[in-house]
């Protein structure tokens, strides 16, 4: 066993009404370690560097392979999935690692925030195919492989919140819906049956805080862990909404 240590600096808060505080922990390094396994070490021995016994840090995680979207946090100042944050990469020379909760969502505790607004937004944009029923109705519409190749990357969005966290337009002074939901509009409007309800989805992002609020900072694509072409999606939806504004609202 090596005696190499990793230092974690964690921004903690017991509940939304309590004070924020930084706590530091040293944990033993091991190969292929990531932020989650480091946090697990803290759980097994929740003692800060100055020897104080504290409650273990809490965080959200589930799949640990970057498909569930649960473990988003701010690692060294930048939002990302913490499961793929490999210690050797983010702290190559043993630099302290800072962990903080996302700032654009209401805090629950420590590194846990409440992202329910993102799920509400999915409802708002009607991110679904309006199915006649789950009974047998034969195959779905045929689709060209290119269609699938366009849709598939879009449909990998895990609702992790990285794009909202990094977006300067998403904040408590604006009600911008954010890139994730807009991307869903594009995804469903691409689908042969989904497109039958395209207008409803477009209308949903043509209101206050809709697609027009995008500020083109394009941080979303930079931080998206699934490399979803979010800017392209915004551009697509912008085009569709423009058309709908001209031919659906104004010239109708």
């Amino acid at each position: 066993m090596s005696d190499k240590k990793i230092r974690l600096k964690i921004l903690r808060q017991d509940s939304p009404t309590k004070e924020k505080r930084w706590e530091e922990f040293d944990v033993e390094w091991h190969p292929r370690m990531n932020v989650i396994s480091a946090l697990m070490e803290v759980q097994r021995n929740p003692v800060t560097v100055d020897g104080t016994k504290v409650a273990p840090v809490v965080w959200e995680s589930s799949c640990l392979e970057e498909v569930c979207g649960a473990c988003t946090m701010i690692v060294n100042g930048r939002v990302r999935q913490s499961c793929t944050a490999l210690i050797d990469q983010i702290s190559p020379n043993g630099e302290p690692i800072t962990l903080a909760p996302m700032t654009k969502f209401p805090l629950v505790r420590d590194l846990i925030v409440d992202r329910s607004r993102m799920f509400h937004d999915l409802t708002k944009v009607k991110a679904w195919i309006t199915l006649d029923g789950s009974h047998e109705l034969g195959p779905g519409p045929r689709q060209a492989p290119e269609n699938q190749e366009e849709a598939y990357p879009l449909s990998r969005c895990m609702t992790c919140g990285c794009c909202l966290e990094a977006c300067p337009q998403v904040n408590d002074h604006s009600n911008f819906i954010g890139p994730a939901a807009i991307n869903q509009v594009r995804l469903f409007n691409l689908h042969p049956s989904g497109s039958m309800h395209a207008t409803e989805r477009l209308e949903a992002v043509m209101g206050e805080g809709g697609v027009a609020d995008c500020g083109k900072a394009q941080n979303c694509v930079e931080v998206c862990p699934k490399e979803i072409p979010l800017v392209d999606s915004i551009a697509q939806v912008s085009r569709a909404t423009t058309k709908h504004m001209l031919f659906g609202w104004l010239l109708k």
Binding site: W128, I129, E136, L137, P139, Q143, P145, Q148, Y152, S155
Partner: peptide
């Protein structure tokens, strides 16, 4: 087969053959 077709109708982006089938 019915289940996979249902999923297809729900919009799952299944990989496609050249003919546009699953």
């Amino acid at each position: 087969p019915g289940i996979v077709y249902m999923l297809d109708r729900m919009g799952v982006p299944f990989n496609r053959t050249a003919e546009g089938l699953l």
